[in-house]
Design a binder for these strands. Structure first.
Lengths: 297, 297
DNA sequence: CGACATTATACAAACCTTGAACAACATCGG
DNA sequence: CCGATGTTGTTCAAGGTTTGTATAATGTCG
């Protein structure tokens, strides 16, 4: 509550709640009592933004705003608890401990132990933070070590198998409903599914309806789904697929005109130009969906 | 948690009871006394939703609503205790209803609906029964229909994707530790993972420690794991792998002498003889692990 | 001055409520 | 077997509530 730094326009952009609506909520339900400048301008703090985000999420899940507001005390408690740890690195020591514990268990090929650590961590962290701050760096390191030869294929697979399983659990328990609809998929010969799972998780928590087709999706399959469901967005993750070029061309031909499509993952970088020419949007990493999700259509 | 947050529309969606019926039940039998907003709108809590779900289940089983209502006190006690409905033998009609519901949702390409049905079923049935009596036949039918051309590739994938996700959730929440240790895997070019997941689930519930390597396991990977962990058993599922023969030969060469190995799945049948000669045990279907699990010691 | 905010009022779409009626079905006495 | 009666889920219309957005007139900031 100390630093009230954002004006209403910025608060609106950061939270995804429209300006008039923020004022309406304040007037009608007394949500937030933003400090005012001498001239009467509202100023919002980071905590205020979080509250707004949470309220928006609740309404998108089908809870009426009037009822959502009644939960304000618990929401604020949540926010305060979440704010105690910096959003970037929640408890760096604990994260590092989990990180090392997984690597140790992997060295022993002890899958139950890997799963146990991931389960503990995913229980103590918000799902998205779990993915962004622990799982994602962990798998990057495991991949690097594998390339460097200090980790065997078995160890690498064991970790990614456990990670995939945990992500499936998180995804299944994430909110389901949403106005906007995204279809998540990867090329037919793509083996890595985790980036896509991470993206799907972010979308769900941002209030999207997610249809998850998974890695190794035939173009024909994807086209059928898009044609029938007409999603607002198609999100495609490319990591180690080898046939990106034919895939992109087939995709361009198969998708209905005007389908908004975003591509992400390490594997897309070499084909950025082709993808752009075909009308796709390209992200450097799939982590970059995060800001993109907020941007409204 | 007595927060009454859902309006009647949401309560209807979440419980599966139609809006007018919720009101009718309230009017006629005094079921639930939802709080009201100042304007008179009903608001329901999570516990209310559970009660509605339970009532719906009872009526669908043939219990008259008037009778079901008399059980309300015990229902509410159940809900308050958070107790799941006691596991019971799968009712053929209910199974059939779920079965059809999934097929219908698949026809609409409605993945959230598929997931919802599977989630409901897996909550009401013991995990193994859920797999054996619902998921397994369901996927066989979906596969058949796909071959027959009455189901598109998209619909088939959507169902198996949702099934895989649900199985991952079940597997993650199954008991972890055990005396005997089994490693579950499939050939490097195997695409179907569900049979393997089912087997893993059975093993876990039978008290085994399971190391789950998943579909598409390189032989090298499997060999490393077996060599290090020295499991009591290696279980391998083969469904639509095309290179079974080289896989089996590589496996025979790579696994340590005396590794007890069991092979199952539709894809193994043509190679039964070779497998037996190499010292592997062959099951007709992977469902046959079930007696096998118990038998061994 | 231009971009941005403020308040107050208004409005339409989506949503909910009540009460009554209705159709389908079972049960029971004749 | 028939019709009467009760149960149960659904449908409809009229009228109120909630909620996001729009407008106008005015003020603040850099």
């Amino acid at each position: 509550m100390s630093d009230a730094v954002y004006r209403i326009q910025m608060a609106s952009q950061l939270s995804g709640v429209s300006e008039p609506l923020i004022r309406a909520w304040e007037r009608r339900y007394g949500v937030l009592n933003p400090k005012r400048t001498p001239g009467g301008y509202r100023t919002y703090s980071d905590a205020d933004i979080e509250v707004l985000k949470r309220l928006k999420q609740l309404t998108e899940e089908g809870v009426a705003i009037a009822q959502a507001v009644q939960q304000l005390p618990s929401i604020k408690r949540e926010v305060r608890a979440g704010a105690r740890t910096p959003p970037r690195a929640p408890e760096p020591e604990e994260l590092e401990a989990w990180h090392q514990a997984v690597l140790k268990a992997a060295a022993r090929l002890d899958q139950p132990a890997i799963q146990a650590v991931l389960e503990e961590a995913s229980g103590k962290l918000p799902a998205e933070v779990f993915f962004d701050a622990l799982l994602s760096p962990l798998l990057r390191e495991v991949g690097d070590r594998w390339h460097a030869g200090t980790l065997t294929v078995a160890q690498e697979h064991l970790v990614s198998q456990a990670a995939r399983q945990r992500m499936n659990v998180l995804l299944a328990s994430a909110p389901h409903r949403g106005e906007r609809h995204v279809v998540c998929a990867s090329p037919p010969d793509e083996e890595h599914e985790l980036g896509l799972l991470g993206a799907a998780l972010h979308f769900r928590h941002a209030g999207w309806r997610v249809t998850f087709l998974g890695a190794r999706t035939p173009v024909e399959h994807l086209a059928q789904v898009v044609e029938t469901l007409r999603p607002d967005l198609v999100a495609i993750s490319v990591v180690n697929s080898l046939r990106v070029r034919p895939f992109l061309e087939a995709l361009g031909a198969a998708l209905p005109r005007g389908t908004r499509t975003v591509l992400g993952g390490a594997g897309i970088t070499p084909h950025r130009e082709l993808a752009t020419r075909l009308g796709f949007q390209v992200l450097q990493q799939f982590a970059d969906v995060i800001p993109w999700i907020q941007e409204s259509s």
